[in-house]
């Protein structure tokens, strides 16, 4: 067990290292010159060269890599080329914003998704099931950015009920969280349903039913409890996905989070910012995957053999 854990953690560290290095060199493969972008469209060649020097981009790439990695080990993410302020400063408000948004999205989508899934499973092949699954399959088929715009045009433009942008009040999180959570809600509803159907076919459920236990306690106390572990795992994995998926949603709502920052940073070729953001996105993914792997190993010791 311990050996398995150590192996998993080492593998994760290796993946992280590869990701860091790959991203560092990949961003520099992107055509386009940050010095030119930052100097501006009307800048002279001389301006561009001055900017390049002041940003340290005239140094050899390998030297820049060493500077970057040694900074990373000290917890220094570097300085944004675009704003000339530390990347950590750029992240200070945006990261919590995105986490808040993702948490709100996961909260509503998990609640609705699980209820919908259980409801469908309980009424399998009846109209409730069809309705539930129609909602769910629609949910995964709706493009995020489209839902966002439809919500804005209804609730902000037409009805003036909810703000379509901002991060300063709870109200301004509602529309983006709804948008971001729709797909996850649908995925969770489908997953919960199939997992519940499997559980409801198990022998212990038949036993429970034959003992005369009512359908509601059978569903929740027995079947759902046993589905919980896998449902929670999926929620965890979706959370990592959500933080990445927020790129499009944030763009729609001009939301001041790390997704918007990524798009801006890419267009400015802000290398330190892009590197840090992709590292953060993948870190969430990798860590959640690690936890999932470990959980599986703990819950299902057979897996170590494979």
């Amino acid at each position: 067990m311990v050996r398995y854990l150590v192996k998993k953690i080492l593998e994760t560290l290796l993946t992280l290292f590869i990701v860091t290095t790959a991203v560092f060199f990949f961003v520099r493969m992107i055509p386009g010159d940050p010095a030119r972008v930052i100097a501006g469209e009307q800048a002279t060649l001389e301006d561009v060269e001055n900017v390049r020097e002041s940003l340290g981009l005239n140094k050899p790439v390998t030297e820049q890599y060493v500077i970057y990695v040694s900074g990373l080990l000290k917890g220094d993410l570097g300085t944004s080329l675009r704003t000339k302020r530390p990347v950590t400063f750029e992240l200070k408000n945006r990261y919590p914003n995105t986490i808040k948004l993702a948490s709100m999205a996961i909260l509503w989508s998990a609640t609705v998704g699980i209820l919908l899934g259980v409801w469908s499973a309980r009424h399998r092949t009846k109209w409730q099931d069809y309705l539930g699954m129609t909602i769910a399959v629609s949910g995964i088929s709706l493009p995020n950015f489209w839902i966002g715009f439809m919500l804005i045009s209804l609730f902000s433009v037409k009805l003036h009920l909810l703000p379509s942008t901002g991060t300063d009040s709870f109200k301004s999180f509602i529309l983006p969280a709804l948008t971001l959570g729709t797909n996850i809600m649908a995925i969770l509803a489908r997953f919960t349903r199939s997992s519940m159907i499997e559980q409801l076919k198990e022998d212990y459920i038949r036993t429970a039913r034959s003992k005369g236990i009512g359908e509601t306690p059978v569903t929740w106390k027995h079947a759902f409890r046993n589905s919980m572990i896998s449902v929670v795992t999926v929620i965890g994995m979706q959370f990592g996905f959500l933080i990445g998926g927020s790129v499009v949603t944030e763009q729609v709502f001009a939301f001041n989070g790390i997704g918007t920052l990524l798009v801006t940073s890419v267009s400015f070729r802000d290398y330190p910012c892009i590197q840090s953001l992709i590292l953060i996105f993948s870190l969430h993914f990798i860590i959640i995957n690690l936890i999932v792997d470990i959980l599986y190993a703990v819950l299902n010791p057979e897996i170590q053999l494979s």
Binding site: E11, V19, G244, V247, V266, I278, F281, F285
Partner: peptide
């Protein structure tokens, strides 16, 4: 390991990175 690395990026971000290059 390559799959792990690819999986480490949420889909749309990976696509953005590839298109950028």
């Amino acid at each position: 390991r390559m799959c792990d690395v690819l999986f480490a990026f949420p889909g749309i971000i990976l696509a953005i990175a590839i298109i950028a290059i």
